[in-house]
Simulated scan of single mutants.
Amino acid sequence: MLTVIKATLVLSESFDACVWAMASCAFFSMMRFGEVSVASRSAFSPSKHLTSKTARAGETQSIFLNEQGDLCPLAALRNLVSVVPALADDPLFSWHDAKGEVHPMVKVRAMERINSILMGCGWGTSFGHSFRIGGASFYLAKKVDPEIV
């Protein structure tokens, strides 16, 4: 499903680049989709949500990602940064409108885009928690120690 989502999205467009980065990062880091998105544009707060600079100076924030071939979350983030250059306090998972204004990605909008692709393939719909569960299942199938997962 991730392969089809990536192939369908237009990764040179900011909205789709953001959706792909969110999907790939949520899956491979086993995050809830709510951790990579916001409930509404006005709900974004740099103190509560991931920003382009994810921690204050001297603080550590850990999100564990590694290379994953064609579906690589690191490549998805590099693409997002090139398509949507953001300031340190801007949302990490953001897109820009026709005026160039940066907006945080709202969960409902991202899931609508993903589900339009999945429904077009006859697969039904996904929910945000599917990425975390899918990532955990992926790592367990690869024989990663359940304590690590």
Rank of each mutant, 00 (worst) to 15 (best):
M1Q: 08
M1L: 11
A7K: 13
V10T: 14
L11C: 09
L11P: 06
E13K: 12
S14K: 01
C18N: 06
C18E: 04
C18A: 15
V19G: 08
W20R: 01
A21L: 07
M22W: 00
A26Q: 02
F28A: 04
F28I: 03
S29L: 03
M30A: 13
M30T: 15
M30S: 11
R32S: 07
R32N: 06
F33K: 01
G34E: 11
G34D: 09
G34F: 00
S37W: 02
V38I: 09
R41G: 10
S42Q: 13
S42N: 11
S42I: 13
A43L: 07
A43W: 07
S45W: 02
S45P: 01
S45A: 13
P46W: 03
H49Y: 08
L50E: 01
L50G: 01
S52T: 14
S52A: 14
A55R: 08
R56I: 07
R56F: 09
A57D: 13
A57N: 11
G58I: 11
G58C: 10
Q61K: 12
F64Y: 11
F64D: 13
F64G: 10
F64V: 14
N66A: 13
Q68Y: 02
L71Y: 09
L71G: 09
P73R: 00
L74I: 15
A75T: 14
A75R: 11
A76M: 06
A76H: 03
L77G: 01
R78S: 12
R78M: 08
N79C: 12
L80M: 09
V83E: 04
V84L: 08
A86W: 00
L87Y: 10
A88F: 04
D89C: 05
D90K: 07
D90C: 10
P91Q: 03
F93D: 03
H96P: 06
D97R: 03
A98L: 06
A98T: 13
K99F: 09
K99S: 14
G100S: 06
E101H: 11
H103W: 15
H103L: 07
H103C: 08
K107V: 02
R109W: 08
R109V: 09
M111N: 02
M111Y: 01
R113H: 04
I114K: 01
N115H: 04
N115Q: 02
N115F: 02
S116H: 06
I117G: 07
C121I: 08
G122S: 06
G124H: 00
T125A: 09
F127T: 15
H129G: 00
R132E: 08
I133E: 02
I133D: 02
A136L: 03
A136Y: 00
S137M: 12
F138C: 06
F138P: 03
F138I: 06
L140T: 13
A141H: 12
A141F: 05
A141M: 11
K142T: 11
K142P: 02
P146W: 04
E147K: 14
